[in-house]
């Protein structure tokens, strides 16, 4: 059975980066797929990768991570201004971040307007969870 856990932006918004990353990793290590409202900063994403590496062992093999958000750099000037204003008004809540354990989520494909989660075959996932 796959568990999806939705995390509201306001739940982690005020946490310092280390605690934010720890909370996300703890959830993923419980074999849950996180749907996070909004996105992490680029520095937090890098910190999440570093922390993930520190936790890798026989049972935990890492994460699959993907962010779905409109990219302001590929748009016109007015759109960029609108995007910046939206970011200020929503406090970085726009977009969605998906984080899943690599033993369950094989790959997250981004198109870039849609996300596809390719899952690890159930038997293989069970075998990988054994240390």
């Amino acid at each position: 059975m796959i568990t999806l856990q939705f995390i509201n932006h306001s739940t982690i918004q005020h946490l310092p980066p280390e605690r934010k990353v720890r909370k996300l990793l703890e959830t993923v290590k419980e074999d849950k797929i996180i749907l996070l409202e909004g996105r992490l900063t680029k520095q937090e994403e890098a910190h999440l990768i570093q922390a993930t590496m520190e936790h890798i062992n026989g049972r935990f093999r890492g994460i699959e991570l993907s962010v779905l958000s409109s990219d302001q750099k590929q748009q016109g000037l007015m759109k960029q201004v609108q995007h910046s204003l939206l970011g200020l008004l929503t406090g970085g809540r726009h977009g969605i971040t998906i984080i899943g354990p690599a033993t369950i989520v094989k790959e997250i494909k981004k198109d870039p307007d849609k996300i596809q989660l390719l899952m690890v075959e159930a038997r293989a996932a069970k075998r990988k969870k054994k240390p």
Binding site: T41, K42, E45, I49, S66, V67
Partner: peptide
Amino acid sequence: PYSQVNLTIIGNLEA
């Protein structure tokens, strides 16, 4: 090219 690793690396360099 849209893998999150690529986006994170380039985003961090930009930041």
